[in-house]
């Protein structure tokens, strides 16, 4: 009968799908070491901040156990009990170091490091102190002096290039002189006898050359600072690469991150803005120096700076 076929098909569908789901659930439970024998160890932390029950315990990046209990000791310290599957217990030795890591991306974890895997097994009743590494605070600490240095360089460059600065005055003077030189009359006058004017010009040009050298040095310094800043901030291992990773994850983690992250993000934004300003400034100074050089070259091409050389009159 057709209905029997229908009922058979529905029954087969339900039974096989439920079996598949159960098999998956069993596989998950097995992989989560639900059926494995557990070894427990005790750790001690000064503060419970960042600790939670169920937090993963990692060895070489692999989860080998979980935090199974947290309790306060009589001295007010936090006693952490971790459960590690028996098959992973060989990684937890007496010489193992335990660290609570609070990474920029992802949830906190306890990391086990064992230098000598041949040492004695960690006794279950021994209480081992735990170290804390807070990536966010580390980044903030590293980034702070860098931001201050970049800020001061930016201020200096600003001073150098603002209206009324020595550099600008010199550029203005040079322009005036070049203008004068470009007029044939003045050139003749200067070339034929006005020694004073020539000396002034020479002095000015020397000054320009000196300043150019200074600007060049400053630019190199700025370059190296920027490069450092770039390396430190934008480089592969730089703070911003890490910070960029936070930004990618920031939407999901935003609510859970505390005020420290807010500071870190604000700082990262400042850092990026300042570095961009520096790049712009460097570009401006580069252009100025380049036009100065061009100017000098033009002046040198147009003038007989060698006093022994005679200028033939037409």
């Amino acid at each position: 009968m057709a209905r029997d076929t229908l009922q058979y098909k529905v029954g087969l569908f339900i039974v096989s799908t439920v079996a598949l789901i159960l098999a998956t659930a069993v596989l998950v439970a097995y992989k989560k070491d639900l059926f494995a024998d557990l070894a427990t160890y005790r750790l001690l932390s000064e503060s419970g901040e960042g600790l939670s029950q169920g937090m993963p315990v990692l060895f070489s990046g692999f989860e080998i156990g979980k935090v199974s209990a947290l309790e306060l000791s009589e001295k007010g310290e936090v006693l952490i009990t971790i459960s590690v599957a028996q098959k992973h217990a060989r990684w937890v030795r007496e010489t193992s170091a335990f660290t609570l890591e609070k990474p920029l991306v992802g949830s906190p974890r306890i990391v086990v490091k064992t230098e000598d895997t041949g040492s004695a097994e960690l006794p279950a009743d021994k209480i081992v102190p735990i170290k804390t590494i807070d990536d966010i605070n580390e980044v903030i600490k590293k980034a702070q002096p860098l931001v201050e240095r970049i800020q001061s360089v930016a201020d200096n460059v600003d001073k150098m290039t603002n209206e009324g600065s020595e550099l600008n005055k010199i550029i203005a003077d040079t322009r005036k002189i070049t203008k004068m030189l470009s007029e044939k009359k003045s050139l003749l006058e200067m070339a034929t006898g006005d020694k004073k004017g020539q000396e002034t010009l020479m002095k000015t040009l020397e000054q320009v050359a000196a300043i150019t050298a200074t600007v060049d040095t400053t630019v190199k310094r700025i370059d190296s600072m920027t490069a450092k800043a770039d390396e430190g901030v934008f480089g592969d291992k730089g703070s911003l690469a890490t910070v960029n990773n936070i930004l990618l994850d920031i939407e999901a983690k935003f609510k859970r991150l505390d005020a420290l992250i807010d500071n870190a993000v604000t700082m990262s934004a400042d850092l990026q803005g300042t570095t961009q300003d520096i790049n712009l400034l460097r570009k401006d100074v580069d252009e100025t120096v380049s036009s100065l050089r061009q100017l000098l070259q033009d002046v040198r091409n147009s003038l007989p700076f060698d006093q022994k050389k005679e200028i033939k009159l037409p």
């Binding site: 659930a25 596989l27 998950v28 097995y30 992989k31 989560k32 993963p56 692999f62 989860e63």
Partner: peptide, 14 residues
């Protein structure tokens, strides 16, 4: 792969 998936799945997900 199965280890990674299993560790990420929490029982409450079911």
């Amino acid at each position: 792969y199965t280890e990674l998936i299993a560790k990420a799945i929490e029982y409450r997900y079911f």
